[in-house]
Design a protein around this nucleic acid. Structure first.
Lengths: 206, 206
DNA sequence: ACCTGAACACCGTTCAAGT
DNA sequence: ACCTGAACACCGTTCAAGT
């Protein structure tokens, strides 16, 4: 009885994408704090150290997750004409991502502007705004401001929502929660666009 | 030779405030990730478990730190008349806190709205805005929107700044950093106030 | 009431070794 | 190239014990 030629017992060909997909699924299921190298490895049925074949460190894993999230954002290219339409479309997709992946969202939203996965993506958006007629300087200023608004709103919205889902709310604390529902996100964005148009784009130097 | 009556070898009377002060100092010196129970204990020259006499858990410690930061914010009471002045003053102090304690700031800025230290503080600001003539509903909406903007802007500003200080910048990544300097914080806030006045306060239902 | 050491169940990561 | 177990230096927190 000859021995079997192939013994494919060991799981091979684990890809970077397998890591980020499993990581995002884990974060959405159990929260950001559940993302540990050991926990992710057990999720992928491999030894903790196997992850380091595909990723240099935990920080590099998080950069890869942010890359993955940015790819999701870029699936539909915006097709607006005015800078206002472009900003609306860009932030709508940003908000949709926060709704779809609330626990992972802050990894993207709070990443420093100069981090390697984020900077090129922001460069693309700035280029789009320039194409819509803004100077590069105004485009950067406007993107910085609307992105700050959207990130701040959606991160705290997602965190408060996670807490509510976990049932950590006392009755007398419920009053403030409604301050930040998603309807207000759109109203605030419209106010911001109107104000930016009046003061930064059409307005003279104050 | 009689034994000494008092042997005050063991450090007593450690207060909650000692914990939060030392914690904030530690965070500013070495970053948020340096805040561990064991590290903080060694900073205070006590055993790790001594901290649990004053604080139920690490999460409770962080709530206490947020309380401490809110007290700093409330040191000067605002004295504006219009809601616009009130918003400006409130956010100026918020920005100053981010400048003064950049590494601790996000503990306050990203705390869920319904968390126990934050909710009463927000209630006070809402009351001030009502006193300036806004309905409670409008006051909440406006506070939610300007706070989202300020938190998002300042947290990413502080994080990017910490990275820059640590010298993690590649040359070709420097372009985006200027997108978010503090001058733009004020310009964005003015745009937001103008837009809110036009669309939410003076404007009819859109 | 306030402080403490030992112990438990976790972390990220280095290293040397396997295929 | 890809995977692995053992080991190291850390975590937060429980428990039983000291003053």
């Amino acid at each position: 009885m000859p021995p079997r030629q192939e013994i494919p017992e060991i799981r091979q060909n684990l890809t970077r994408r397998d890591l980020t997909s499993a990581a995002i699924a884990l974060i959405e299921r159990e929260g950001l704090s559940a993302l540990t190298m050991r926990r992710l490895a057990s999720e992928l049925d491999c030894a903790p150290m196997s992850l380091y074949t595909h990723v240099r460190s935990r920080d590099a894993l998080i950069d890869a997750i942010v890359d993955h999230l940015i790819e999701q954002l870029d699936l539909q290219q915006p097709g607006g004409e005015s800078w206002q339409q472009l900003v609306r479309q860009t932030l709508d997709r940003y908000r949709d991502l926060a709704v779809q992946l609330p626990n992972s969202f802050e990894l993207l939203a709070l990443a420093p502007y100069d981090s390697s996965p984020v900077a090129p993506h922001l460069g693309n958006v700035v280029a789009g705004l320039e194409h819509a007629g803004l100077s590069r300087e105004k485009a950067r200023q406007i993107l910085g401001i609307v992105d700050a608004y959207a990130s701040g709103f959606l991160v705290v919205w997602a965190r408060s929502r996670a807490r509510a889902a976990a049932g950590e709310l006392a009755d007398d604390e419920l009053g403030m929660t409604g301050m930040r529902d998603l309807e207000m996100f759109d109203r605030g964005l419209e106010a911001l666009i109107a104000g930016l148009d009046a003061t930064l784009v059409r307005g003279e130097l104050p």
